[in-house]
């Protein structure tokens, strides 16, 4: 994950590949009740960033992933009780993040933003609920990391994964 972006633009072809990867993400019942709003206008990106305390650096591209409440209703889903609405946003986003990474780009999902403020800036209709903003851009070069590097994945994996019974560690060492 990248939090500190450089100024270079993302190529149009790369952006389409990322969006296409998202389209192929698994989705419950193939409902796809999300909609994606792509931002490349530097002024709009700055305004959204201003209202997003969780965004530390302005990327070349923002993809605002919204739940379309009209699509939710049309699919017969309950927006407040249907977990697939949120799970599908996650699979969509992860597909796009993986594709971006494969292209040498950096990404960061941001959820700490003012829904009210960003909704107004972007002119979102009432039935578009912004869930997460995916930041996409080239990682900044030769600048200090905003966050310290986390623990090695192997240690985290042992803490996160149980085997056969909840709380039971693997009988074998990771790897």
């Amino acid at each position: 994950m990248v939090r500190d972006f450089g100024p270079s633009p993302v190529e149009e072809s790369q952006l389409w590949m990322i969006l296409e990867a998202g389209r192929w993400a698994s989705a419950a019942s193939n409902n796809r009740v999300y909609r994606l709003l792509v931002l490349r206008d530097r002024r709009r990106i700055k305004l959204v960033a201003d209202l997003s305390p969780g965004i530390f650096s302005q990327p070349a591209v923002m993809v605002v992933i919204c739940t379309d409440l009209q699509a939710v209703a049309a699919a017969g889903l309950r927006q407040d009780a249907e977990p697939t609405v949120f799970v599908d946003v996650g699979t969509l986003m992860m597909n796009m993040m993986a594709q971006a990474h494969a292209l040498g780009l950096g990404t960061c999902p941001a959820t700490s933003f003012s829904r009210a403020g960003v909704g107004l800036i972007l002119g979102l209709p009432a039935h578009a609920r912004p869930e997460v903003i995916l930041l996409i851009g080239h990682p900044a070069a030769a600048r200090p990391r905003i966050l310290p590097r986390r623990s090695p994945p192997s240690r985290l994996l042992a803490e996160l994964v149980y085997w056969e019974r909840y709380g039971q560690a693997s009988p074998l060492p990771p790897g």
Partner: peptide
Amino acid sequence: YELLAHLVASAEICVTEPHYY
């Protein structure tokens, strides 16, 4: 205004974020 936006937006999202945020 950038500072103002940061503070006001923080006030909104702090309602749902963990307290240490």
